[in-house]
């Protein structure tokens, strides 16, 4: 049998302290608000340079210069193959009816699909660029469709809305556009 004490007393309580820290951490994790989206870290930064061909026959394509013409607007990232994009169509139409300019970027989409989508769900866009390889999407830190960005007159990204726009989001977008005007 041995005589020495194994360790000082406080170290014996160390495991319990670590465990309590763990419990506190996961309790936070269990009850945190469900924030499962990847937000862009480009807010407040200028749009990158890009030139996209037209995605639909009756609207011009999109370049960075089109988005830095002094007028704030919405930049909507969508795709014809994306179901939530159809869901947000009435809200985009409502924003458009208020006189808000909306530019579109169609992700990995064929012209005929885009045309069919717009014919079916309405076309609130003044310009639509075709982003076949997610160049613009990756350039502005967007990670899915649909997403909607508020762009100010200088071409700076001011706000990102992730997921479809629901009726309750319209007021906030309007607000953000107003801020972008200043």
């Amino acid at each position: 049998m041995s005589d020495q004490k194994p360790t000082s007393r406080w170290t014996l309580w160390l495991p319990l302290a670590l465990f309590l820290g763990f419990v506190a951490l996961v309790l936070f994790g269990l009850y945190r608000p469900a924030d499962r989206e990847v937000a862009s870290t480009m807010i407040g930064k200028p749009l990158p340079e890009f030139t996209l061909r037209a995605a639909a026959p009756d609207r011009p394509g999109l370049t960075r210069a089109d988005l830095a013409d002094g007028q704030p607007r919405l930049l909507n990232i969508f795709a014809s193959w994306c179901v939530p994009c159809a869901v947000e169509a009435p809200q985009l139409a409502a924003l458009k009816a208020e006189g808000i300019d909306i530019a579109g970027v169609a992700i990995r989409d064929r012209p005929e699909d885009v045309a069919a989508f717009l014919a079916r769900h309405g076309n609130p866009f003044s310009r639509i660029g075709a982003d076949d390889r997610s160049i613009v999407q990756l350039g502005i830190g967007s990670s899915g469709v649909p997403e909607t960005f508020v762009i100010d007159g200088k071409g700076t990204i001011r706000y990102q809305h992730i997921g479809e726009i629901r009726p309750e989001h319209i007021a906030l977008l309007r607000e953000k556009l107003k801020e972008a005007t200043q």
Binding site: S2, K5, P6, L12, L16, F19
Partner: peptide, 13 residues
């Protein structure tokens, strides 16, 4: 772990 904290000191190595 509470039990460990209380008892381990009396368990020699």
């Amino acid at each position: 772990l509470v039990l460990f904290g209380l008892r381990a000191a009396s368990v020699t190595e």
